[in-house]
Amino acid sequence: MLLIYNEKTNPYFNLAMEEYLLKNFDEDMFILWRNERSVIVGKNQNTLSEINLDYIKENSIPVVRRQSGGGAVFHDLGNINFTFISNNNDNFNNFKRFTNPIIEILKTLDINAEFSGRNDLLIDGCKFSGNAQYNYKNKVMHHGTLLFASQISDLSNALKVKPMKFKDKSVKSVKARVTNISEHLKVPMDILEFKDLIIDYLYKTNTDTKYYTLSELDIININKLVEEKYNTWDWNFGHSPKYALYNELKYPGGNVEFNLNVEKGIIKDIKFFGDFFGKCDISQIENLLLNTKHEEENLKTILNSININDYFLGADTDILISGIMGVK
């Protein structure tokens, strides 16, 4: 088994790294990595219905879609991510097989952790690890989070979705009480010491293990995958399942109701209703927005080309975009 101690913290790079290693190496692997503040959504989720868009924008937090299913998670430098890649896909859906080493490592620190439910690890009834899997040909990739000293308030704020405005069939994240591993340590250690402890444990308890460092060619190929996929709107937002959005917005000129149907991130139907005034027919704006990306910068480009006040008296582009994006 190859052991990779990855020190890069760019979430786009790290998610691309997983896919690259899964599809281009034949060996079993174990990878440790951390991300800067970011939200990682499951492959089958509607990104907009999982995140607090206001908080994401205000704090410039990247949102990245991963290969595996499951719910959305918040990453920061207080969280360690681990990835197993196995050439035996009989291990698919066997979450205990890959999480047991983590439980055993924590036992060496006098922390009693337990596997719970479908894919979680708990300490004293509180979640510190969520896990997901992805099957590729005859291989399985299992990855999980380890909250060590994560900013729990940031986690809550980034994933605190406003009252339901989305109707879709996407996989919903399940919220749970969470805890940090560091809060349960008998002897304090920092996150990098804990990261070292994990990799050392895997090295000593598995036969035929050796360390592997990403080559220059590996990094070039991973960065290519970042550009083509992981740092694109099409993958992170446009890949969302079909959904409908309903929103209401009150502004000085009146009330507006927003009704949208979106497929693969593209607005397929949009209607405005309300008690607002305007000298021009709002159907002109509706037609302008049809078959365009449900994405803020795209909307801004289109709406800046017209005088919003002609259609919604007393409104401006920012007000209209807020309503269309589901923000109050």
Results as ranks from 00 to 15, higher is better:
Ile4Met: 06
Ile4Cys: 04
Leu15Gly: 05
Leu21Asp: 05
Leu22Met: 10
Lys23Gly: 01
Lys23His: 00
Asp26Asn: 15
Asp28Gly: 01
Trp33Ala: 06
Asn35Lys: 02
Val41Thr: 07
Asn52Arg: 04
Asn52Ser: 09
Ile61Pro: 12
Pro62Gly: 11
Arg65Asp: 11
Arg66Phe: 02
Gly69Glu: 11
Val73Cys: 03
Val73Ile: 14
Leu77Ser: 04
Gly78Pro: 11
Phe84Tyr: 15
Asn88Asp: 15
Asn93Glu: 11
Pro101Trp: 03
Glu104Ala: 11
Ile105Met: 10
Asn112Thr: 10
Arg118Met: 04
Leu121Asn: 04
Lys127Cys: 09
Ser129Pro: 11
Gly130Pro: 11
Tyr134Ala: 10
Asn135Thr: 13
Lys137Ile: 04
Lys137Trp: 01
Asn138Ala: 08
His142Trp: 14
Leu146Pro: 02
Ser150Pro: 09
Ser156Phe: 12
Ala158Arg: 02
Ala158Thr: 06
Met164Trp: 07
Ser170Pro: 01
Ala176Asp: 05
Val187Trp: 12
Met189Val: 00
Met189Phe: 06
Asp190Ala: 04
Leu192Asn: 13
Phe194Lys: 03
Phe194Arg: 05
Lys195Phe: 06
Ile199Asp: 14
Ile199His: 15
Asp200Tyr: 14
Asp200Asn: 15
Tyr201Arg: 09
Lys204Ile: 02
Thr209Glu: 00
Lys210Val: 09
Tyr211Asn: 13
Ile219Lys: 15
Asn223Trp: 05
Leu225Glu: 09
Glu227His: 07
Thr232His: 06
Trp233Lys: 01
Asp234Ser: 15
Gly238Met: 05
Pro241Met: 08
Leu245Val: 03
Pro252Lys: 12
Gly254Asp: 00
Phe258Met: 11
Val262Lys: 07
Asp275Ala: 08
Asp281Glu: 09
Ser283Met: 10
Thr292Lys: 15
Thr292Asp: 09
Thr292His: 12
Lys293His: 14
Lys293Leu: 12
Lys300Ser: 09
Ser305Met: 13
Ile306Pro: 01
Ile308His: 02
Ala315Thr: 03
Asp316Cys: 14
Ile319Ala: 05
Leu320Asn: 03
Ile321Leu: 04
Ile324Asn: 13
